[in-house]
Design a protein around this nucleic acid. Structure first.
Length: 204
DNA sequence: CGCTCGATATTCT
DNA sequence: GAATATCGAGCGA
């Protein structure tokens, strides 16, 4: 039996899915020259992004080549390249009523494959290894090749497993955006030491 | 500690 | 041309 989250988990309002993903585990399967390697971490910070009605969302202009996953089947990886240097990873999630939606994974606490992640990042400190959306994609080797990957399949290169439920979750405004800043659609585990630096400021 | 700024490709105006 | 769902170095306190 697998602990992998199933499709129906992501067929719910994007904001609810974002909140419920805090405490779950993201798993990356790598094939290092024939040797299987598993990298994973507990999700400690997420953000919800909606469809055309959300002014801060990539989907606000309607479907395009980049944001297509946000309008498609739920439970798939939406990976994009930003600031000319970084990748960010989301999971598509929405109800039938919502035109588009995805949850940005902003930070994780590393669990498995910590040494490999340190090599990918040229970083030795655990608390800064994956404490940001660009950091965790680098640590887990997540790039555009994973865009569209089915994250509800445990044989996939990237998927979500059930974690500890019942942890407290705090909501705050989203980070790094200039529109729709009044929506409190960022969710964090306040007890974690691996949330992004900007995020920590808002908790205090 | 906190703030500013440069890097650097894709997307938007 | 400007903005961007970011990061880390460099600087001042």
């Amino acid at each position: 039996v697998s602990n992998c989250l199933e499709r129906h988990f992501f067929s719910r309002p994007t904001v609810k899915v974002a909140k419920d993903l805090v405490g779950m585990k993201i798993v990356r399967r790598l094939d290092r020259g024939g040797i299987a390697e598993r990298l994973s971490g507990t999700i400690v910070e997420t953000e919800a992004y909606g469809g055309p009605e959300d002014e801060a969302s990539h989907a606000r202009m309607g479907p395009t080549a980049r944001n297509a996953v946000m309008f498609g089947q739920v439970g798939r990886a939406y990976v994009y390249f930003t600031y000319g240097t970084h990748f960010c990873v989301n999971i598509s999630a929405r109800t039938l009523r919502q035109k588009a939606g995805a949850v940005l994974i902003r930070a994780i606490e590393p669990l498995e494959g910590v040494e490999a992640m340190k090599l990918h990042r040229t970083c030795t400190e655990l608390h800064s290894l994956a404490s940001g959306p660009g950091k965790l994609t680098q640590a887990m080797k997540i790039g555009l090749d994973l865009n569209g990957a089915d994250m509800t399949d445990p044989r996939s290169a990237l998927f979500i497993e059930r974690g500890i439920s019942g942890k407290s979750v705090v909501s705050t405004p989203r980070i790094g955006i200039s529109r729709a800043t009044e929506k409190r659609w960022r969710f964090i585990d306040p007890s974690s030491t691996s949330i992004s630096r900007k995020a920590r400021i808002n908790v205090r």
